[in-house]
């Protein structure tokens, strides 16, 4: 358990660092940035306490916000996924339930499960994030296209990470 805690702390800082140092600086097609820090929320342990999860969501979001100079924009989106994650996991539980020794990773539950789970989380996060960035429905179509492109790249990186880094 101690090991898992340390791993998650390490992941928190690694992803935060990667996000603000690398991914925030490589816009794809000029305007979409992959938000890989969402992976942190995806890979938190199954049995993490809901309150603690919310606080983590707020802290990581606000840290990203301060580094991109957009207070509240990311925090609002990360809070939403931190709040919804337990419900999503409960809905997607396999018949025999989650094995508490496992983690929500592709290596444990297979590509299909992991992809669906990650896509739901990333989509919710990006929808709220892109709405927060413009704060209006004036250019909804443009916004949706941007969000979809962004979801695609974020998902690509998250799935790749499962094959390259987070092996069993």
């Amino acid at each position: 358990m101690g090991n898992l805690f340390q791993k998650n702390i390490l992941r928190f800082f690694t992803l935060f660092g990667l996000q603000i140092l690398i991914f925030n600086n490589i816009p794809i097609f000029g305007y979409s940035l992959p938000y890989v820090y969402v992976l942190f929320f995806i890979m938190l342990p199954f049995d993490i306490h809901k309150t603690f999860l919310l606080i983590l969501g707020f802290i990581l979001g606000i840290l990203i916000d301060f580094s991109t100079n957009s207070p509240g924009v990311h925090a609002s989106a990360t809070l939403a996924i931190a709040f919804l994650r337990p419900y999503i996991l409960a809905k997607m539980a396999p018949r025999q339930g989650y094995d508490l020794n496992s983690q929500p990773m592709l290596a444990y539950y297979g590509f299909r499960w992991f992809f669906q789970y990650a896509l739901i989380i990333v989509s919710i996060h990006h929808t709220i994030l892109f709405f927060n960035l413009s704060f209006s429905f004036d250019e909804s179509l443009f916004l949706i296209i941007r969000a979809i492109i962004n979801i695609f790249f974020t998902m690509l990186l998250i799935v790749l990470s499962q094959y390259l880094v987070y092996k069993k």
Partner: peptide, 26 residues
């Protein structure tokens, strides 16, 4: 949990509205 979520979300939205110029005007 819900109350904390709502509270923090309100904090976020007020941050967005008060510190981000385009969002504020919108």
């Amino acid at each position: 949990v819900i109350l904390l979520f709502l509270l923090l979300q309100i904090v976020c939205i007020s941050l967005i509205v008060s510190f981000n110029e385009p969002q504020k005007t919108h």
